[in-house]
Simulated assay, not measured.
Amino acid sequence: MAVYVALFVLIAGGAGVLTATADSPEIGFENPDFEVSEGDPIEVDGEEYVVAGVEGDDGAESSAVATIERNVTAEQSETWANESTVEVGDREWRVMITGEDPNEFTLVEELDRQAILEDDSQADNETVERDDGEYVVVTEDGESTLVPVEEYFPTPEERSYAEDDAFEYGDNTATVDNVTADQAVLVWEATETESIEIEGEAIVTIGETEFVANFPDASTVQLSSDIEGYEAQVAQIEQFQQYNSGLTRVLVLAFLSSLLLLGAAFIPSRY
């Protein structure tokens, strides 16, 4: 009985030592395509990216993330329907298109009549309707006068644009691409920021190339196009975990077997 107990203890001790001293393999790239930190440039397939941020998590590879960005110039367009209201240069305008086969449109300024009235201390804040039209009540020296709205309000500004004409629209220079009886189409080129998020130990496509990411520390990301090498490391880690799990089960079983044998040895005989 003592020999068997010693044998199981020896097995348990060996399994415990192997489990405690074995070093788990980790993902690592000896020669990554890129090893960069925040602010570093990356050129892939002729396109240049910049590392906008790296958020490693000190060993928690699954929660680590990096972001790379690049500026892309793309054509944008906008359609203005006839008689719609648009905002250009911090003012509102009405789009006016006339004719059956037009090649231009006119922007007619939309006056803020209410603001003009409120800014005039001598005028009532509302217009009045009479049988012969609309008026503004203006009071001067205690005497009120009805002024036709056509005379009181300034003449709205008008701006006409033909096809291929360009003008400032927001932060861009827009070109009149096409005008029909129903609408006008504007086009312009704008720079947009394209972002790609890279997660730890995940395969990401940048341009036309696939990379796998690794975070050796909290501020650095490695990118490697050696996908096969990465998959081989993953397989090695899985194999190690299987072996380690098996040794743990051997340790537990050997220990329980020793206790069972010791318990059986002290059971009193019935004879």
Rank of each mutant, 00 (worst) to 15 (best):
A60S: 10
A235P: 00
V252M: 14
I198A: 02
A22F: 05
N31A: 14
Q114M: 02
A22I: 00
Q242H: 10
E201R: 10
L10P: 05
S225K: 07
N244W: 13
S63F: 10
S144W: 06
V44K: 02
R159Q: 13
M96T: 14
T67A: 06
D182G: 10
A162P: 02
G170V: 06
E231H: 10
P25A: 03
E87H: 01
L223S: 01
R130V: 07
A218N: 09
E140C: 00
Q222A: 11
E26A: 13
R270F: 08
P102Y: 04
D119R: 10
V5H: 05
L253C: 06
D57W: 05
E104Y: 10
I196M: 12
D101W: 07
E197F: 07
L247V: 12
I27H: 08
G16K: 03
A74S: 10
R113T: 08
N103Q: 15
R270A: 12
D90N: 14
S160K: 12
W188V: 01
D33A: 14
L256M: 07
L117S: 13
V5P: 00
N31T: 09
E140N: 14
A202P: 03
Q122M: 02
A232D: 15
L262T: 05
V17R: 03
P216K: 03
E192L: 12
V221T: 01
A213V: 04
L107C: 03
E168I: 04
S160T: 15
E163F: 02
D165P: 00
E199Q: 13
E228W: 03
Y169F: 15
P216G: 01
A190D: 15
A60K: 08
D58I: 03
E157D: 13
V187T: 11
T209M: 09
A265Y: 04
T248L: 12
A232C: 08
Q236R: 12
E197Q: 13
N125V: 08
E30C: 05
Q114P: 03
A15N: 03
A264T: 12
V149N: 00
V51N: 00
E61G: 12
T173N: 06
E201Q: 14
I227R: 05
F105D: 09
L18Q: 11
E151M: 01
A181M: 05
T98N: 09
E100N: 11
A254G: 07
D182T: 10
S224F: 13
V128M: 07
E197T: 13
S195T: 11
V252D: 01
D217M: 05
P102H: 07
G133Y: 07
W188Y: 15
V234I: 15
T248H: 09
V86Q: 01
E228S: 13
I97P: 07
Y161G: 01
E110S: 02
S121E: 14
Y4T: 06
